[in-house]
């Protein structure tokens, strides 16, 4: 691993990497309650930071894009009531599994690879144990997994040279990750795992895709259209009012600007205060 030899930033360049973070929780099976869990705990949950799940994964072990080439380690700060509430995960998978009874905000701190020369960044995630949407009772009864996952993109503005090199498919660290990929039998498309692209279609394993992005864009565009229309209406109304105002001003003259001097106002204020 080379020392951060160059701290020269590449001007005007921005590189982003998508990832997802979130939590999934499942209530204890009353019949098969884990023995080690404290008595008041009701759920088993897991908080994680992952790459975008790749579409070709169908099996149990979900594949996802590589985030370890830019993410070195992740620190999850749990509620203070947990033992060792600060959990540092040094290598992928970046996740923490726990049991609990309550929801709280987890601070997720991202430590980037040393080449990046960047400081750690923090995100908050609200742990969700209970279903809030849909048929709540049904979900509770079925003990379905409650997921709360957010898509996010990390943006490296003006990265330093070595990091840029690394993010664009070169560098020694890239080789390293490739090596790791090889170990976990992902070597086949290790190159593509370093990508910032997101799958074009959603599927069972992954809901974060270009398709989804398009939908979101449509939604926003529609909202913009709606607002624009309202602005047009508002403007029309405003024009009408202005016209009216102009007419009135013709006959009545402009509104008098100075009739009560300032001290009068003050007097009024003062009087209000005194009496």
């Amino acid at each position: 691993m080379p020392a951060p030899a160059s701290t020269k930033r590449l001007r005007g360049v921005q590189i982003h990497r998508p990832f997802i973070f979130g939590s999934e929780a499942i209530p204890f099976d009353p019949a098969n309650r884990p023995r080690d869990a404290p008595t008041d705990h009701t759920h088993r949950w897991r908080v994680f930071v992952r790459g975008i799940p790749t579409s070709n994964s169908a099996g149990q072990q979900q594949q996802s894009t590589d985030i370890s080439h830019w993410l070195k380690k992740v620190q999850f700060k749990l509620h203070d009531t947990y033992a060792n509430s600060v959990r540092m995960v040094e290598s992928p998978p970046f996740e923490v599994e726990e049991t609990g009874w309550g929801e709280f905000e987890i601070a997720i701190k991202f430590y980037f690879v040393p080449e990046s020369g960047e400081k750690p960044q923090q995100l908050w995630h609200a742990l969700k144990l209970h279903p809030y949407t849909g048929d709540i009772e049904r979900q509770k009864a079925d003990r379905t997994t409650v997921k709360s996952v957010c898509y996010e993109e990390v943006v490296f503005s003006e990265p330093v040279e070595p990091f840029y090199d690394l993010l664009t498919g070169g560098g020694e660290a890239g080789g390293q990750t490739r090596g790791k990929g090889g170990k976990s039998t992902k070597a086949a498309n290790s190159g593509s795992l370093k990508t910032a692209e997101i799958p074009s279609k959603s599927n069972g394993a992954n809901v974060w895709s270009k398709e989804e992005e398009g939908k979101e864009l449509d939604r926003l565009a529609e909202a913009v259209k709606k607002v624009e229309k309202m602005i047009v209406d508002e403007k029309a109304q405003l024009v009408a009012e202005e016209k009216k105002l102009a007419q009135l001003e013709k006959t009545e003259g402009k509104l008098l600007k100075k009739r009560i001097p300032n001290n009068m106002q003050e007097a009024a204020m003062l009087g209000g205060g005194v009496l």
């Binding site: 930033r9 001007r11 005007g12 921005q14 982003h16 991202f110 980037f112 990046s116 960047e118 400081k119 960044q121 995100l123 996010e152 993109e153 990390v154 943006v155 490296f156 503005s157 003006e158």
Partner: peptide, 8 residues
Amino acid sequence: LTSGVSFR
């Protein structure tokens, strides 16, 4: 751009 990391 302001150099550094940020989340979208």
